[in-house]
Amino acid sequence: MHIAFERVRLAREGFTLQADVSVEPGTSVAVIGPSGAGKSTLLSLVAGFDRPDAGRILIGGQDMARVRPADRPVTLLFQDNNLFPHLTVFQNVALGRAPNLRLDQADRAACSSVLARVDLAGHANKRPAELSGGQQSRAALARALLRAKPVLLLDEPFAALGPALRRDMLDLVAEIRAERDMTLMMVTHDPEDARRIAGQVIFVQAGHVEPPRDTAAVFNSPTPGMAAYLGI
């Protein structure tokens, strides 16, 4: 689904985010840049947790100004707290189908099937605390699968995982994205992550959002600000 930031401005303590860019349907875009540059805020605008002071955000051609977070065609995986600690894995996933947890037979079957898809079939009745970090991430991904929203946003949900596990998770994301033809935007600090699954890169620095460029091109001929950030 097409995502467009039309002359978006958002004033924050420390910086003003300015974005006038768009993301093509079905692409994977890595959002990189220094800490505090506005990467998370950019995703937050798409998900509807922040509202622009000026400009519009369009998803699939539709203005999002009056659309609640839950009604946007978007799933955002947060850095942490993606799972409620007091609910079972199954319930956590099922929230993606029925926010009040009233489930019928079809809902249950759908939950079981996405849990199986991320290899958590045997863990349905555990609480998040009983899962490893990687399993928790997969549970959150299972819910994203179940919600089947066309836009998937990752705000560094795998940051706490080790390198090997993080690569596995990114590969799983890439598979799921391809299966469902989702549009993906992911914040990352690591150029390696971008190379691994993102076709394009958006560079954000001090609130300024550069338009997406092909990943290979970015790393071969970075803009000056980007070269400074990457140290090349």
Partner: peptide, 16 residues
Amino acid sequence: RLADSLGMTGWGRFRH
């Protein structure tokens, strides 16, 4: 935010 993004509202949100 998680509850918002999942559309949890009213009694269900309070309870869960």
